[in-house]
């Protein structure tokens, strides 16, 4: 038996919007730790890892570890039917091939339940090694989204380079080139607008912009994004979910042969 009650149901709505374009179907894993997911996109270039810790739920009951295969498109359709202020409860019985999403309005005058069919999905978990990153950039998530969107209109790939001067995002396409430099800016009064660069070594890596633009769908989840880079390693783009966990995207680089 599984019963997870999330007062801030909008978090789950935002999570689905953040991952449904990258991954079609995925297994959600439920354990005492929390509600989690790890899945690759169909071309195996990007990987998304989601964790919603059990402590973040109002009520969290998970009698035994469960893995539930879901179509993220269909799950997003169902969660779109929840109001932004609704309390969302996820329920499943042992051995059932369905999951129920219950939506309660804040004043309890409207209660809806949506039952969704589960599916069998073959998926393998990948071991993500602990890594010391050469450079970690923390910046406003809206700024990162804007940069990826703007560069995506000019080129297909972004070169991210971190130096003492700041972080530079560059692209080139048929119409020309673009470079955007963000310098460290530790706004004390508005921490959500800060750009903080921790650099052990200068690092330059190349990535496909369409994935970066897909990751930016997580922008409504967090005011800040953390980008961790090391030469010849996948970049980690992390959006923290307040009090609950995170959505982390890993993207394999493009490497000159």
């Amino acid at each position: 038996m599984l019963e997870l009650r999330l007062v801030q149901g909008s978090i789950l709505k935002k999570v689905l919007e953040a991952i449904k374009d990258l991954v079609n179907d995925a297994n959600f894993d439920c354990s005492a730790t929390g509600f989690s997911l790890q899945a690759m996109d169909s071309s195996h270039v990007a990987l998304v890892a989601l964790l919603l810790r059990s402590e973040g739920f109002e009520h969290y009951r998970c009698d035994r570890n469960l893995s539930m295969g879901m179509s993220l498109t269909n799950m997003a359709k169902m969660l779109k039917c929840a109001g932004n202020d609704d309390i969302v409860t996820i329920k499943a019985d042992d051995g059932s091939d369905t999951i129920t999403f219950m939506f309660e309005s804040p004043t309890q005058d409207k209660i809806a339940d949506f039952e969704m069919k589960l599916m069998d999905i073959d998926s393998e978990h990948l071991g993500i090694p602990e890594a010391e990153y050469e450079a970690i950039v923390r910046m406003p998530s809206s700024e990162f989204a804007r940069i990826c969107k703007d560069l995506g209109t000019i080129g297909d790939t972004v070169v991210i380079s971190v130096t003492k001067e700041g972080v530079k995002f560059s692209t080139r396409g048929d119409i020309g080139t673009a470079n955007i430099v963000c310098r460290q800016n530790t706004s004390i009064d508005k921490p959500e607008e800060a750009t903080i660069i921790e650099m052990q070594e200068p690092v330059t890596l190349t990535f496909a912009l369409r994935y970066m633009n897909s990751f930016a769908k997580a922008t409504p989840l967090a005011t800040q994004v953390t980008i961790s880079l090391s030469s010849e390693l996948p970049v980690v783009v992390e959006y923290k979910i307040a009090e609950m966990g995170y959505v982390r995207y890993y993207l394999a680089p493009k490497i000159e042969e």
Binding site: L47, H125, L126, G127, T157, L233, P234, A252, E256, E257
Partner: peptide, 14 residues
């Protein structure tokens, strides 16, 4: 241009 690597090149299956 540079070659797009896959994530499984860096992270192994459990």
């Amino acid at each position: 241009g540079p070659k797009q690597y896959t994530i499984t090149r860096f992270f192994s299956k459990l």
